[in-house]
Design a protein around this nucleic acid. Structure first.
Length: 729
DNA sequence: TTCAAGAGAGTTTTT
DNA sequence: CTCTCTTGAA
């Protein structure tokens, strides 16, 4: 058989991975080493050469984008011979399993998915329902804890408080939250995975069926798996399934949300006979960029070890710009982009990468001023917009009246006279009777004296409205299409009218979005897997809305400068990368510096940033930066010192200002020049935000004077004297 | 019930 | 500084 079309375009390491004999394989795929190509060619190899039927293959990714990309490449490679092949995200696959086996999973047939936002609202209501103080038990933190426990596979009964009242309360919240979800037929993201895992463990026949079916498991971005996802793969593989895991421990940047890089090491221990292959040849960046990246990541201990190399040229040296402040940094970056454009370059060659979203603003302002088009990644996506979520709440409630999260959202949007007072009565009754809000509402309406006539009428009107919407559902006997159903809902609920006369500026775009929702519904077609799982068009659509939030901003195809966080940049590449804000406390972030063991992940993030660049890499930092309203002084990031100096061109030698300030004589000079209070080392001062502290150092002079103050609460900080508005005390 | 002013918090994000 | 959410008054 001729297999050359599958192997010809590959390098020896890639070829070895694609054509590997039976057995588990761990592919350590460095940045830009052709990871997706190896994955897709491996699948093609299995089907064409090993004669594995497509339905016996399960390929798992983390994002819908990656799944879509893989499916597209497979279609091109296999020309349609992909019937029955399962490609999806962990959550997507778990969702389908649960839809298909809802009875075995003890879920209502019309269960709905609770997204992160809804989840937090629900947790919040649970906390106040338990009579707990929100200040002592922040909903944010409680939600985080619940998700962390679920990601570890732990149910409330498996947890112990060990005498800690705080832990006790969190377990109580967790238990009450689970109960609320059960009553409302809601499943959050972590629950999708946990339920699917439990389903397999509790139903041996089902497990046997899926082990028999999926003999080949391929996992993308393996370093991002959490405990539960790893356990799920182990269960599914059993003793018969073969696992092909692709990942890069040096690009593990999601530890903070439960991903366990250790799984890469555990894989070799837990999957007998597993072999390791390394893809180290890079097809993306210049040798200079790779040398820098290799040098940086070498500062991390506990690596599996990898050294990227390229057959290509050295390329230009890396530029480093020491900006005076964030505005100077932005001006410089935008000027370089303008030069690139003047030279005939494309805007979308350029990406500005930063550690935190707040940094994008200055760059946006400068780009706008220079009339250079740009696109900021991240932010609200289509299905996350308030008006769309409102609309979806009506659809969900009509599909499943027990969906309390949807009830709470829809009930008074638009306002219909059902305020906090009435809702509180409803919540209390629902909790006492252990039923959903909808049922509690029915009960209260039956009891003539329970509600005021006005509230009762409003509530009755709302419930009749939901029933009228439900009657127009595609699955109901009325027989409307999905798009007609959505249009009907928008009209009946008066949502569209409400947003039309919305006074808060952006009414137009909100109405446009609502209209767009009708078009989205009209275009929507359930995927083959949804059909296979027996989903109706409405359930399929609602699942799609919850699991695939859609594009952040339209016009992705336009030629414009790309702005995004380093996290968002993972997996992408650009000819010219500006990695900005390389300052201690910003990148690496202060929060990571404060906690043990978080620095290596920051370094991996920097590694991800460096390896995004194909041709040119430009680094920058600001000596002074305005953050949260206060001017802060920062030192260059330690990561800069970890790059070989020979690879770097300092665009402007940075001003050396570290003369110690000999107080009080020098402080007196400062006072004369700038009209600032005289300061001396050791003096106690007060800052509006950080409280009291002691001056421990100072440098620079005149308007540039910066002082280091050790605050009692906020710790040690460098501040620009001119902005800090310190009071002596 | 609704609106407006004040308080408080502000890494990173997908599903 | 800027956004979100809570709180208090009309």
């Amino acid at each position: 058989m001729d297999v050359s079309h599958l192997l010809d375009a590959l390098n020896p390491a890639q070829r070895e991975a694609v054509s590997a004999p039976a057995g588990h394989l761990l592919v350590l795929a460095g940045a830009g080493s052709g990871k997706t190509r190896v994955l897709t060619h491996r699948i093609a190899w299995l089907i064409e050469v090993e004669r594995v039927p497509p339905w016996a293959i399960l390929a798992v990714t983390f994002t819908n984008k990656a799944a879509g990309e893989m499916r597209g490449r497979l279609d091109a490679l296999l020309a349609g011979r992909t019937q029955g092949l399962s490609v999806g995200t962990f959550h997507g696959i778990a969702h389908r399993l649960l839809r298909r086996h809802w009875q075995e999973a003890r879920l209502p047939q019309m269960f709905q998915i609770l997204d992160a936002d809804d989840q937090q609202r629900l947790v919040k209501r649970v906390i106040s329902g338990l009579g707990l103080d929100e200040a002592r038990h922040p909903p944010r933190q409680a939600t985080w804890q619940i998700n962390a426990w679920k990601d570890e596979g732990r149910r409330p009964d498996m947890l112990e408080d060990r005498g800690h009242p705080q832990t006790r309360a969190q377990i109580d919240i967790y238990r009450a939250y689970e109960e609320a979800c059960r009553r409302a037929g809601l499943v959050d993201f972590a629950e999708l995975l946990l339920r699917a895992h439990e389903l397999m463990l509790e139903q041996p026949a089902l497990l046997a069926h899926y082990r028999e079916r999926w003999r080949q498991l391929l996992i993308d971005e393996f370093q991002d798996t959490n405990t539960l996802q790893y356990a799920w793969i182990r269960v599914l593989a059993g003793n018969t399934g073969q696992v092909f895991a692709v990942g890069d421990d040096d690009q593990a940047i999601y530890g903070w949300r439960g991903a366990r890089v250790e799984n890469v090491q555990h894989f070799l221990r837990d999957f007998p006979g597993a072999r390791t292959l390394r893809l180290e040849q890079n097809y993306r960046s210049t040798a200079t960029i790779l040398k820098a990246a290799n040098a940086l990541i070498a500062h991390n201990g506990s690596r599996l070890g990898k050294q990227l190399w390229t057959a290509g040229a050295d390329g230009a040296r890396i530029a480093l710009y020491a900006a005076y402040n964030e505005l100077d940094e932005a001006r410089h970056v935008v000027q370089r982009i303008a030069e690139h454009l003047d030279g005939g370059g494309r805007a979308d060659d350029c990406a500005i990468l930063y550690r935190s979203n707040a940094q994008s603003r200055v760059f946006e302002e400068q780009l706008m001023q220079q009339r250079i088009g740009y696109r900021v990644y991240g932010g609200l996506r289509f299905f996350e917009r308030a008006e769309i979520r409102d609309a979806l709440a009506y659809l969900r409630l009509a599909a499943n009246p027990n969906d309390d999260a949807a009830f709470e959202r829809a009930v008074n949007t638009p306002p219909r006279g059902l305020g906090e007072r009435t809702l509180d009565t409803l919540r209390t009754h629902a909790r006492a009777a252990r039923v959903a809000m909808w049922q509690a509402a029915s009960l209260l309406l039956a009891d003539k004296s329970a509600l005021s006539a006005r509230a009762g009428n409003a509530l009755r009107g709302f419930m009749e409205l939901i029933q009228r919407i439900a009657a127009s559902a595609p699955d109901a006997s009325g027989g409307l299409t999905l798009a007609e159903h959505v249009a009907q809902m928008l009209a009946l609920s008066e949502l569209r009218a409400f947003y039309e006369k919305d006074s808060r500026g952006n009414a137009e775009s909100r109405v446009e979005n609502l209209d767009e929702l009708i078009s989205v519904a009209a275009r929507f077609e359930p995927g083959p897997e949804d059909v296979e799982a027996g989903l109706g068009v409405l359930a399929s659509f609602l699942g799609h809305a919850a699991l695939e939030a859609g594009e952040a901003q339209g016009e992705a195809g336009q030629d414009c400068v790309q702005l995004m966080t380093l996290h968002a940049a993972k997996g992408l590449e650009f000819s010219i990368v500006f990695l900005v804000g390389l300052e201690e406390g910003l990148f690496p972030s202060q929060k990571s510096l404060d906690e043990d063991g978080r620095l290596e992940e920051e370094r991996r993030l920097a590694y991800v940033g460096l390896t995004r660049a194909r041709q040119r890499l430009l680094l920058s930092y600001a000596e002074s930066r305005r953050l949260h309203g206060t001017e802060m002084l920062a030192r260059p990031s330690r990561f800069l010192a970890e790059l070989p100096a020979a690879l770097i061109d300092e665009v402007r030698p940075r001003v050396q200002v570290s003369r110690p300030l000999y107080a009080p004589a020098r402080a007196h000079a400062v006072e004369e020049e700038t009209d600032l209070p005289a300061l001396r080392l050791g003096q106690r001062v007060r800052h509006a935000q950080f409280g009291e502290g002691v001056v421990t150092a100072a440098e620079g002079g005149g308007a540039h004077t910066r002082v280091q103050i050790n605050f009692a609460q906020a710790g040690s900080k460098w501040l620009v004297l001119a902005y800090a508005r310190l009071e002596a005390c």
